[in-house]
C-alpha cells in the first residue's frame, strides 16, 4: 500500500485507491535531486499525509494474523501461573499446617492438597488419610472456611493454566503441525517464543534451534571460551531426558535437525509429514545411543 505515489517522471498523488500496484523502485536510475523537487511539492499536503499515514498504519496493524503471538503469550502465561501457583501453594501449606498437619506432610502434590482442602471437611480428610487421632488444632469452623477461600483461588489458577495449554496445542496443530508433533506443545511454544516467529524458526539453522534458550552459555563460550552448551530448551524434551548423559548432546542435535526440517515444512506448505519425521528421528536416536 502506498501513501505517496511518485513516478520517475515527476507525477505524484496522495493515497489513492489505485496505488496497490505501483512501486517504481529503480535504484540504478534513482535521482535524488528530482526526488527532492518532487518531495517539496508533496510536503505542502503534509496534514493529509499524516492523516492518511495513520489510517494506513491502523489498517495494516489490525489486518495481521496474530496466532503466533497468542501462542507465545499463552506459553508465558503458563510459566507465570506455574510460578504463582508455587508461591501461593507454599503459603497455603504453611497456613494449613497447624490444622491439617498429616495432610501437609503426606501429600506432595500441590493440586491434590488444594482440591482436598476445597472439597472436603476436616473429618473426611482425616478418615481418608486413615488417621484416628489427628495432631491438628481443633479450630473453629470459621477458620477452615478461610482456608477454603484461599484454596479456591489457587484452583482457579490451575484452571487458567489448563485452558492455556489446551489453547496452545489446538492452535499449534493448525499453524505448526509437524513441529509440535516432534517437540510437543509446550516445548514448541517455548521455542517459538525464543525465535519470535515461525518465519524466523524456518530460516534458522538446526544448530541454532538446538541452542535456543542457552544464549547465555553460548555467549559465554564465544567471549570467554568456556564449554559450548549442548542444548537449550530442548533439554526438556523427553528423548533428551531419557538418554544417558553422554548421548544427550547427540540426541538434542538429532531432534534439532528434524525440528528445523519440520519448521520449514510448516512455514512453507503446512503439509503433515510428522509420522515420517518422527520415525526417522527415532531410528537415528537409537543409533546414537548404541554408539
Amino acid at each position: 500500500m502506498a501513501l505517496v505515489y511518485r513516478h520517475i517522471t515527476g507525477e505524484y498523488y496522495i493515497g489513492s485507491q489505485e496505488d496497490e500496484k505501483v512501486s517504481e523502485f529503480l535504484p540504478s536510475s534513482f535521482d535524488i535531486s528530482l526526488f527532492e523537487r518532487l518531495s517539496k511539492k508533496v510536503f505542502k499536503e503534509k496534514d493529509k499525509i499524516a492523516r492518511k499515514g495513520i489510517e494506513i498504519a491502523k489498517e495494516k496493524i489490525s489486518g495481521k494474523d496474530y496466532t503466533e503471538d497468542l501462542i507465545i503469550q499463552a506459553s508465558g502465561l503458563i510459566d507465570e501461573s506455574d510460578k504463582t501457583i508455587n508461591y501461593l501453594a507454599r503459603r497455603l501449606r504453611r497456613l494449613a499446617l497447624t490444622i491439617y498437619p498429616e495432610l501437609c506432610l503426606r501429600v506432595d502434590d500441590n493440586k491434590k492438597i488444594v482440591e482436598m482442602l476445597l472439597s472436603k471437611e476436616k473429618e473426611e480428610i482425616n478418615s481418608l488419610l486413615g488417621i484416628k487421632k489427628s495432631m491438628g488444632w481443633k479450630c473453629q469452623k470459621k477458620d477452615c472456611e478461610f482456608l477454603k477461600e484461599a484454596a479456591g483461588k489457587i484452583k482457579e489458577l490451575f484452571t487458567v493454566r489448563e485452558i492455556a495449554s489446551e489453547f496452545i496445542s489446538e492452535k499449534e496443530k493448525r499453524i505448526m503441525p509437524n513441529f509440535s508433533a516432534i517437540a510437543g506443545p509446550s516445548i514448541s511454544a517455548k521455542l517459538l517464543s525464543h525465535a519470535g516467529s515461525l518465519r524466523s524458526l524456518a530460516i534458522m539453522p538446526a544448530s541454532t534451534i538446538q541452542l535456543l534458550g542457552a544464549e547465555k552459555a553460548l555467549f559465554r563460550h564465544i567471549t570467554r571460551g568456556s564449554k559450548c552448551p549442548k542444548y537449550g530448551i530442548l533439554f526438556q524434551h523427553p528423548a533428551v531426558q531419557g538418554a544417558e548423559k553422554k548421548a544427550r548432546g547427540k540426541v538434542a542435535r538429532i531432534i534439532a535437525d528434524k525440528l528445523s526440517i519440520a519448521a520449514r515444512i510448516d512455514f512453507f506448505s503446512k503439509e503433515d509429514k510428522s509420522a515420517e519425521l518422527i520415525k526417522e528421528m527415532e531410528r537415528r536416536i537409537k543409533d546414537a545411543k548404541r554408539k
Binding site: L3, V4, F25, I32, E36, A50, G53
Partner: peptide, 23 residues
C-alpha cells in the same frame, strides 16, 4: 500530534516504503 507518519515496515527493505517517505 499530527506531524508523525507511522510506517509499519522493515527498515531493511526501503523499497517497501519507498512510496510513502519523502526526501
Amino acid at each position: 500530534r499530527g506531524n508523525i507518519v507511522p510506517v509499519l515496515e522493515d527498515a531493511n527493505k526501503p523499497e517497501e516504503y519507498f512510496n510513502t517517505v519523502i526526501a
